[in-house]
Design a binder for these strands. Structure first.
Length: 215
DNA sequence: CTGATGATGTTCT
DNA sequence: GAACATCATCAGA
């Protein structure tokens, strides 16, 4: 079942945590892409200098003023797009970055989208590399800013989040966020969540925190 | 396996 | 003009 408005219109940190294990579904060109969300980050408010919108909204971030469940996609490093879900009630600002998913359906199409060649005998590494990063799964699942910026996961016919069994809390790990060295206060906030031992969780040199913190 | 480097162009100052 | 919520590739171990 598709997640409804009330799921998204909650505290951003709780939305980030509770998205773990749920399935992001995208249907396009007759292909059903499904990715289980295994890693998220919360970007919270004016106290969070890691958030794009901490000094107020701009044209890029305007959608974050909308009700939870809307889609915020932005360009980064000139060549990539990152997928976020707006949280909180309308006019309250918060967003969740989806950092990694585990492919559940549409793997062959994901392979073609990522590697631009015919699907053929992938190695385990090829599979992991399909969706183990915030720009990677967006490419794999054929999601674009042009098509989905400002869309609404609550009623869009093409894309939504499907409910699933909650991840047991002993499998939820909480850590600092990745690559926000530009932040001062927000740098150390524990706003990244991921599923323990899931092979699709993104890893960066020096940025893997195996320590489990439960909330 | 690890760490370093270049690609690439929108957004904001 | 600088910064950037990243990735692919390459060198070295």
């Amino acid at each position: 079942m598709r997640m409804k408005r009330d799921f998204y219109q909650r505290n951003t940190i709780l939305v980030a945590r509770d998205l773990l294990g749920k399935n992001l579904v995208h249907r396009k060109n007759g292909i059903s892409y499904i990715g289980k969300i295994v890693e998220t980050e919360a970007y919270i408010n004016s106290q969070d200098d890691g958030a794009h919108f901490n000094k107020g909204l701009t044209d890029r971030t305007r959608i974050i003023d909308e009700a939870g469940g809307h889609i915020y996609i932005y360009n980064i490093y000139g060549m990539y797009q990152l997928f976020n879900i707006v949280a909180e009630e309308k006019h309250v600002h918060g967003a969740v970055l989806i950092r990694a998913v585990e492919p559940m359906e549409g793997i062959e199409a994901m392979y073609v989208n990522r590697y631009k060649k015919e699907y053929s005998d992938p190695t385990k590494k090829d599979i992991i590399n399909l969706t183990n990063g915030p720009a990677k799964f967006v490419m794999a699942m054929d999601i674009s800013k042009e098509e989905y910026y400002g869309g609404d996961l609550v009623d869009d016919k093409r894309i939504w989040v499907e409910d699933a069994e909650p991840i047991p809390k002993e499998y939820i790990v909480r850590s600092k966020r990745i690559n926000i060295d530009y932040a001062t206060k927000g740098k150390d906030y524990l706003l990244r969540f991921y599923i323990k031992d899931n092979p699709f969780v993104s890893k960066w040199a020096g940025f893997y925190y195996p320590k489990a913190i439960f909330i």
